[in-house]
């Protein structure tokens, strides 16, 4: 699915003393099968932006086209759009309301009018997707730990099998293994379904190893839209926007600063390992 955002402005609290332009004339095109990370300082407008993608928020001005059709055109069925573009909220609590974990995850598929059998199958496979143990099925989602709630919220959206998957800080509150597993699952989903994925995150490490391109938002405007490598190559401007580079990248910049002839476009531990292994062990062997 192609999503075109044209001159999108969103104003909160119009007519009150706290009027705020959270998005200011934003235009950007997300192509079908893009895998995008969305980063930006606290309050930059990320959540506001993604909530427009499935019609939770309505533009104050500007348009959003889904495969060329205006989302708010009276001929567009916004309900259908919400089944195709799934959004996981920043706070899972904003999404959980049913009495049991099962019913919460089943909520979307039920609304889609699927059969009981299909719903059950989807709930169970969504739970597997997020690594939720089956013994939590009948528990109240409110009696779960923070990370477990987050997983239920993600599972609820996955169970709808949307064509476009939008996740607002999905790894916040997940333990490191769950974080890694989830990112791998999302990547797999992206490949297997030829879907489009947009992930909001404050973890530069997660972004570096997961997405292809990154959008940087600052003060309600889009500052950059570039491949991952180009984003992290510019540490100074990232830090001026309250952002950062992955820790592992800092190691190589420090080596370079000390006069070592080494590349600094090292954004993952995996790549760092391969590089250093060949430098340290490869050369040792040659000398011997």
């Amino acid at each position: 699915m192609k999503i075109e955002i044209q001159n999108l402005t969103h104003t909160y609290g119009a007519g009150t003393p706290f009027v705020k332009n959270a998005l200011d004339d934003v235009s950007i095109t997300i192509e079908d099968h893009d895998f995008i990370g969305l980063i930006g300082h606290t309050g930059s407008g990320k959540s506001t932006l993604v909530q427009h993608l499935n019609g939770i928020l309505k533009p104050t001005s500007g348009r959003i086209l889904i495969d060329g059709r205006d989302m708010w055109d009276k001929n567009t069925n916004i309900r259908e759009v919400r089944f195709k573009i799934g959004l996981v909220f920043q706070y899972p609590e904003h999404q959980l309301f049913e009495e049991t974990v099962y019913r919460d995850i089943a909520f979307g598929p039920t609304n889609m009018g699927l059969s009981e059998e299909e719903i059950r199958e989807r709930v169970l496979s969504a739970m597997e997707f997020v690594g939720l143990e089956q013994d939590l099925l009948d528990k109240s989602p409110f009696d779960l730990s923070g990370g477990q709630k987050r997983r239920v919220a993600i599972a609820g959206v996955i169970a709808m099998r949307p064509e476009v998957l939008v996740l607002d800080e999905p790894t916040a509150g997940l333990d490191p293994k769950a974080r890694d597993d989830l990112l791998k699952q999302i990547k797999k989903y992206y490949k297997e379904n030829r879907s489009t994925v947009i992930i909001v995150s404050h973890s530069m490490e997660d972004m570096a190893k997961t997405v292809d391109k990154i959008i940087v938002v600052k003060g309600g405007k889009i500052e950059r839209f570039l491949p991952v490598g180009e984003i992290f190559a510019d540490a100074e401007s990232l830090s001026s926007m309250s952002l950062d580079i992955p820790t592992i990248t800092k190691v190589f910049k420090k080596l370079k600063d000390r006069g070592v002839d080494i590349e600094t476009n090292v954004y993952t531990v995996k790549y760092a390992y391969e590089l250093m292994r060949s430098r340290l062990l490869g050369e040792v062997r040659q000398d011997a």
Binding site: D175, P176, K177, A178, I248, V269, L280
Partner: peptide
């Protein structure tokens, strides 16, 4: 289910 900081991980792998 936990991890170590990236620099620690690199050293461990090497």
């Amino acid at each position: 289910g936990l991890d170590v900081p990236q620099p620690t991980e690199l050293m461990y792998l090497l």
